[in-house]
Design a protein around this nucleic acid. Structure first.
Lengths: 197, 197
DNA sequence: GGCGCCAGACTAACCAGTCGGTATGCCCGA
DNA sequence: TCGGGCATACCGACTGGTTAGTCTGGCGCC
């Protein structure tokens, strides 16, 4: 009964995406063969190339999914009806929690950018920039309002914080002493303290 | 006259290392063929395998060089005869400058760890940990002395800062408005402000 | 009877590492 | 001072294995 799914109920494209995400995170993009992916998803190459144009395409889909999710969440927090320092704090903490919940995505995101074709890379960078700008705007708003110090350019602060978020996939261990939320609170504290006038 | 160097004066092993560093940073480890490396260095495979055991070995050498340099510099700053907040500030700013001066090394470092053989990976991690501990000790010393807040565990602060340093290779552009030193000062400021009690 | 969905053999390209061979300088005995 | 043995430094063709992507065909639903 071949009809976009079998065995378990999830559709083939999603199974492929899930398998690819896990394998890319574990072994890296180049070290993962298309053969491995299709075996992990319980299908064959025919299926993969039916739904995706190339291996590169598969990677691009992973990026698209992550970007969409993060942007949505940021918008939610940034648009909330709260004082700017609370909005920033919530957004900063949320991105940490979300990243931890999708650690595979995160390690792929930063480690495999250069495997995307130039045009897809450009596209991802553009979306990434939008995200960055939104976050920066939040900080600038606080700086104008006098809630945050103006000593450090907002751009730098954003990169400082996201550097640490990016780094999470390198050192965070689920069996560590801190829950994702506790960790997120700490990191958000660091950011907010660094912004204190 | 083949005798460890020719054309320019630099010895062949160093030429190979330099070529490999550049290419690994530009294209990633897997995307760089041994053939490309030897061509960039102006030799052939015979030469490469004469000096290095494997492609993996070459990568390991890059890591060894970076680790040695960073550890040396950290030790210098941490052992200085200065108050703890100045020592931390200097160390934190120096690692930024050094990283910018060797951006290729930095992007390889975090992007290609998983390409090292398991045992070499372990070795690199161990050395990395030593570095981390030294830095953490500095922060803990300040916390004990009451110069830094104890609100955030020292470990976390270290990862927070190095996350941003790591991230540098992603967004830093030499033609940007800030000199490496200015940027380093800003990032060190952020760290110190986040640690203010 | 056609179309979406997929299987799996096949191909053309590439790549790390090997290996037999060559060239050069150095040491040491005669 | 000569020469021959030996080590170091390197060359480049070759091999065995792997890989992304193609293509032909078949199965079942509408």
């Amino acid at each position: 009964m071949p009809r976009t799914s079998d065995g378990d109920g999830t559709p083939v494209p999603q199974r492929l995406l899930a398998a690819a995400t896990r394998l890319f995170a574990e072994q890296g993009y180049d070290r993962t063969s298309v053969q491995e992916i299709v075996e992990a998803a319980g299908v064959t190459k025919g299926a993969l190339y039916h739904y995706f144009g190339s291996k590169d395409d598969l990677l691009h889909e992973v990026y698209a999914r992550v970007l969409r999710l993060q942007q949505e969440r940021l918008d939610t927090f940034a648009d909330a009806d709260e004082p700017v320092d609370k909005r920033l704090r919530d957004a900063a903490a949320d991105v940490v929690v979300t990243t931890i919940e999708n650690l595979d995505d995160a390690s792929i995101f930063f480690r495999s950018m250069h495997h995307l074709s130039p045009e897809k890379n450009k596209q991802v960078r553009a979306e990434r920039r939008r995200y960055h700008e939104r976050f920066r705007a939040l900080i600038e708003e606080g700086q104008q309002a006098g809630v945050f110090t103006k000593e450090t350019p907002a751009d730098l602060v954003v990169d400082y914080h996201f550097g640490s978020v990016h780094h999470l996939s390198t050192w965070y261990r689920p069996d560590g002493p801190l829950s994702p939320q506790e960790l997120a609170d700490h990191l958000a504290d660091l950011l907010l303290r660094a912004l204190r006038p």
